[in-house]
């Protein structure tokens, strides 16, 4: 029941990794609860993903919201607000 999690830009640096596989607990059903689970690990995850950080999330390469569903096999990315163009 894994999801692939990607980190970009400042978040990649803060996490110290570009991607990881995460075993999805049964209680995690959306973006908000996934982020809370990651933060609960403490350390870099708590510092990079904790509340107060401006973070955008995508699920399967579409911009997501806090209540966007998350399920096994999904590709989820966390990143700062975008600055292209």
């Amino acid at each position: 029941m894994n999801v692939r999690i990607l980190y970009f830009a400042r978040l990649r640096e803060d996490m110290g990794l570009a991607q990881e596989m995460f075993d999805l607990p049964a209680a995690v059903g959306d973006v908000k609860s996934l982020r809370a689970q990651l933060v609960a690990r403490g350390g870099a995850s708590a510092a990079a993903l904790g509340s107060g950080k401006a973070i955008r999330v995508s699920v399967n390469q579409d911009i997501a919201r806090e209540d966007t569903p998350v399920k096994a096999g999904d590709e989820i990315a966390f990143f700062p607000p975008v600055t292209g163009g």
Binding site: F8, I63, F79, P81, V82, T83, G85
Partner: peptide, 22 residues
């Protein structure tokens, strides 16, 4: 594009490199 496409700029200044803020 400026607000939704996933690009990020890191710029080099005399003080070092920094991520551009949205």
């Amino acid at each position: 594009l400026k607000t939704q496409a996933p690009f990020w700029k890191r710029e080099q200044t005399a003080q070092g490199t920094r991520w551009v803020e949205a």
